[in-house]
Nucleic acid binder design. Structure first.
Lengths: 334, 334
DNA sequence: ATGAAAGCGCTAACAG
DNA sequence: CTGTTAGCGCTTTCAT
């Protein structure tokens, strides 16, 4: 493996000059630069990033921590991160927490030891203490949270507006002339699910729809039981004709339940999900949904981190809120 | 950030001893070891992996190149890789080629510069020259291919037995008493699709089913056109009652087509896909499919790389073939 | 515009 | 079992 030493030998220049060439220093004449580049090519020179990092104190690596990469939501965000990072000559290291607090801590530790310049993280469901984050802070490693944020003040974060997403999804069903709309809810202990639920409720209220507690449905995922639940609802005085599900998965599940009991979508009941999952376009009818603009979330979080990395003095924490996008497909159309 | 120097100062020991402690050298007394560990904790010491790597020539990092992480197949394999690698104190760096030869080359280049100890790669569809691989070889960086392998001799590789998978899928339909089975084929230029096609054909032949060219169907993904194709097939003298699709996506697509034209699955037609995609369990009826044991593929590839990393002398290349697993669900059951 | 020299934090002979 | 020392490949003052 050729190093700058070899180039120095070949060109008769000093190490410093060679180094300057590869760091785009303006202090080198075009002539020498060309000479160095030519020699580098000849020797198939590959800079040793580790040595550079060790010496300069900057690794040009961004650490990314997500619960799971085998999750379209996160892997799309990662694509956004990668894109932005690479465009700025940064490399990323991805670590997974697998929703475990312990593994998350280990992952962060490992990133610190790998001397990442900054960290982008979406915290695990388990995480409830934030010592590591404080440690990172005192360490001087900038950190930007995305999507799953900790309940802390004064942090940089990029979040998705779940409330707004739920609101426009529900409003869409109203505009499609649904008379009674129900919500397939997620676990309200999880903040995004709670927000989606609130968006649903407020959309009803603001549009003068009566809201009753029983409009919010919790499915068990035990099919025969859920079929009973749905059938009972359909036999109500005012049967429902619109459904906003907190996620595409539960929307698909409900679609199957409705098919089983012979309810036609979108003719009898209109459906909208949340998340713009890949499969939502593959099934019949195609699912209307809320797109979360994952790519942009990744890009925004990275841009913010890059800013923090650039400025030497502490910057004021910033919260970026990403607005959702309504995707209308067959499941909610006339 | 505390370093071993600080620990040395605090304990009154030499750098070498401190270093030995963290490298689990047997040459340190229990007493000193404890003293060092205690001091390390007190100072919140984090080893600088880059410095260690630079000095030792071993980064303990494995580079992983895949076409796309936003693809369940690859992200599952990555989970297998991560698991095995972490268990052996290795970190992984993931890079994506996005199916571009150029970006793949860049990704590999970047991994080299990051001084990874070895590389695991599934090559992009575009890749047709293998200079980089030769370069890696001369460089001494061990490399193990998985799933998408290059047409080269003498390489270490772990592949999935697509032929066998197709064979047992088809055989399963035969055992379910299907009389005429068709195959929704992929692009035969892609080797795995070709293999699946061959597995299908051989399963028919070996079981004394007549095989005619027209049993292999290419769908256009233009729905109205495909509906016509399928309807024509159903009106044949011998209508089909079994379908083996080269992937779960096309299987789902076909399922929707069949639903549209009123053909019941599995009553009239039995279906089996390939890949055990996440959604194959979410839809109705649940899809029978072939599971590719991605996790194991990741683990096996990593194990092989770890072996290469351990042994100093060149080892003989090895090809590992992973057998598929039949998953029977509602779409092909009685 | 170029060079000399120090050193980033750690490991690995070698010596004791 | 512990210490001394050189140096991994590069960047970065400081000098010229």
């Amino acid at each position: 493996m050729a190093g700058i030493k070899d180039i120095a030998k070949l060109t008769g220049l000093s190490l410093a000059t060679i180094s300057r060439v590869f760091n785009d220093s303006p202090l080198v004449s075009k002539k020498t630069k060309d000479k160095v580049l030519k020699a580098a090519k000849k020797l198939d020179y590959q800079p040793n990033l580790m040595a550079a990092a060790l010496r300069s104190g900057k690794s040009k690596i961004i650490g990314v921590v997500v619960p799971e990469i085998n999750n379209s939501f996160f892997s799309k965000i990662i694509n956004g991160i990668e894109q932005k990072a690479n465009a700025h000559k940064y490399t990323i290291i991805i670590a997974q927490s697998h929703e475990s607090k312990e593994r998350e801590t280990k992952a962060i530790q490992s990133l610190i030891q790998s001397k990442v310049d900054g960290i982008l993280i979406s915290i695990s469901k388990e995480t409830d203490d934030f010592d590591i984050i404080n440690r990172l802070d005192s360490n001087g490693t900038p950190i930007v949270f995305f999507d799953r944020i900790p309940p802390l003040e004064n942090v940089n974060q990029v979040v998705f507006d779940d409330y707004e997403g739920a609101y426009i999804a529900t409003k869409h069903l109203i505009e499609q002339r649904c008379n009674r709309i129900i919500h397939i809810a997620g676990n309200p202990k999880i903040s995004i699910h709670k927000k989606r639920q609130n968006g649903f409720i407020d959309a009803l209220k603001k549009n003068n729809y009566p809201f009753i507690e029983s409009d919010i449905i919790h499915l068990t995922m035990d099919e025969s039981e859920d079929i009973k639940t749905i059938q009972k609802l359909l036999k109500n005085k005012i049967s429902f004709d619109g459904v906003f599900a907190h996620g595409d998965e539960s929307c698909l599940y409900l679609l199957n339940v409705l098919k089983t009991i012979g309810v036609s979508v979108p003719k009898n009941v209109k459906l909208i999900g949340f998340g713009n999952n890949k499969f939502s376009e593959l099934i019949q009818p195609k699912l209307s949904t809320i797109d979360q603009r994952c790519l942009e979330m990744g890009e925004l979080a990275t841009s913010r981190l890059l800013e923090l990395l650039k400025s030497k003095n502490r910057m004021n924490p910033e919260t970026t809120i990403l607005s959702p996008k309504l995707i209308i497909r067959a499941s909610s159309s006339f």
